[in-house]
Design a protein around this nucleic acid. Structure first.
Lengths: 146, 146
DNA sequence: GTAATTGCTCTAGTCGCTAGAGGTTCAAGA
DNA sequence: TCTTGAACCTCTAGCGACTAGAGCAATTAC
């Protein structure tokens, strides 16, 4: 049996985050000692590792909840799991595309200024003042969590 | 003179967001009518457009505050403006690199599953359960606002 | 004059944590 | 067995950049 601190070291997930996951329902309510401290077994550890891995890959808490539910039904079709993953992949691709447009624009803006003039003549500031100087469309709308 | 709604239409920034910018000090406190409603002039509009453009390029409120201060001193060197832009550019490049690593990994995982088996045998779920199946290192740590 | 629209402030919620206060329990050594 | 100190507990608040809604006041158009 692991204490929450031991679980944290084993998983690489911080202690308050583990409690947060429990609160959010990703982890079941942990068993407690007589004194009220949480205790975990190997199952708890592997579930937490699953969660951490999914979070590292950018899945939202909601998506992970879905994946965990799917895992609880081993005979169900894995179509849903695949579509959650594919959805996440396309979210990431969209974000990359948006950030790349930003990168191009910002690079162009930064290259236009060598830092040697005054702010009055600064190309960075001029660009921000005048959208017409921009080449591409850049908008981060609906760009949420990575 | 524009009302806040007119300013919103002209700039593409939502009304509550304009009030939020004022609260955060990006916009100066607006003049008011006798009845207490905000009124803006062309200066207010161009300042708000500057802010919106910078936000669209991913600059934080803090960075924008800095840029606006620089702009208030037209004879100062624009070195600081350039370095804010360059900093933002490198932030964006880092995020793109991290997201690209994620994309590769997630693509690999999604390709390993055609959705035709059961969750018991699903490669998506198996991958999340076992980090060892992963090819690259993926971690979104310190990936904040786009 | 009246009705519709727009505006005001204030509070609370979003996401996924993180930090801190103030108190309790556990494990190891004497 | 006792003591110490580390680890644990709950609860609240904060981050960033908004967004949503309640409940009321001002403006504008007819």
């Amino acid at each position: 049996m692991y204490s929450i601190g031991a679980l944290s070291r084993q998983s690489g997930v911080k202690v308050p985050t583990i409690r947060y996951y429990e609160e959010r329902g990703l982890l079941p309510e942990a068993e407690r000692t007589a004194g009220g401290q949480r205790r975990y077994d190997a199952d708890g550890l592997s579930r937490l590792r699953f969660i951490k891995h999914a979070r590292d890959l950018g899945f939202s808490i909601e998506a992970i909840t879905g994946l965990l539910e799917l895992q609880a039904h081993p005979d169900a079709s894995c179509q849903s799991a695949r579509s959650i993953a594919v959805g996440q992949l396309s979210d990431i691709r969209l974000k990359i595309a948006q950030l790349s447009a930003l990168e191009r624009e910002l690079n162009r803006i930064a290259e236009g200024c060598d830092g040697s003039s005054t702010t009055r003549d600064c190309y960075v500031l001029a660009s921000l003042n005048d959208h017409a100087l921009c080449v591409s469309d850049h908008s981060l709308k609906q760009l949420g969590r990575p």
